[in-house]
Amino acid sequence: MAAQESTRVEYGKALLKLGEENPDVVALDADLSGSTQTKHFAKAFPERFFNMGVAEQDMLGTAAGLALGGKIPFASTFAVFATGRAWEQIRQSIAYAKLNVKIVASHGGVSVGEDGGSHQAVEDLALMRILPNMVVLVPADGPETRAMVRWAASYQGPVYIRTGRMPFPVIYPEDHDFEPGRSDILKEGTDVTLAGIGLMVHHCLQAADLLAAAGVSARVLNLSCLKPLDWQLVADSARSTGALVTAEEHLATGGLGSAVSEVLAEHCPAPLQRIGLRDIFGTSGPADILLKHYGLMPDDIKEAALKAIARKNQR
């Protein structure tokens, strides 16, 4: 079995390393530095770490001011509070002026588990993707998290990175690099394309194995750069496989499913099945039970793929 790494834990390590390399990097948190993993940076660089208390709006505004003062602020809290509670601060104080603020939010999706629907962000990607000037990233493993954090610090402008609570298998080599607007084909295939983000990338890979056992060849994409989306890769996949599935730990509206739908509608219409929450919030429970309950498992992706292929064959 592959090594397991949690994207939020890897963020904490990457931020610490950035702090060592660049004295302009500063970090903010809203009383969740243990959960978001900014605690390591806080311990190493107390003069560059600002705990803003339970005050997300003030945290994002303060981050905007630090960016105006030439700093590179990384602001972290749970995804639901960063993007929901402080959405208008992100819009007005950060995105509107394209300020150099990095929002790295943990606890995206239902795999948060027991804390329940109030703490499971299932709309954060929609809320961030809609904002002009915002880059939206969802890493699928440790090396990709580290590469994205490094890139975000070098890029001048606002970036949203969603990390997850659960550990995922490592799929990229240690020296993996990130390039905005470009995504990877993790597995080649000809009958259907499975496009995932975050944890669901791994479920797509497992679904591809299940499909292979049934004689179906699936291409798997990691669309971790949700915005700017690698639309050419999506359109190319639609042309070459003729059927697609998107899979996200998020509402099926507004996030990856919508982003891919937009590309297909404008560039290459093809049958698409969206895996995600259907107009519903999360609930309490162990992550594995919730992922099953909301239809986010490899089996669900496999069934969706077969449906998409059947629709393709009816055309």
């Binding site: 709006q57 003030d58 303060t62 981050a63 905007a64 001011g65 105006l68 003062g69 030439g70 602020p73």
Partner: peptide, 9 residues
């Protein structure tokens, strides 16, 4: 809040 951030910087 923005002014605070600028003052910290």
């Amino acid at each position: 809040s923005i002014a605070n951030g600028m003052a910290l910087a």
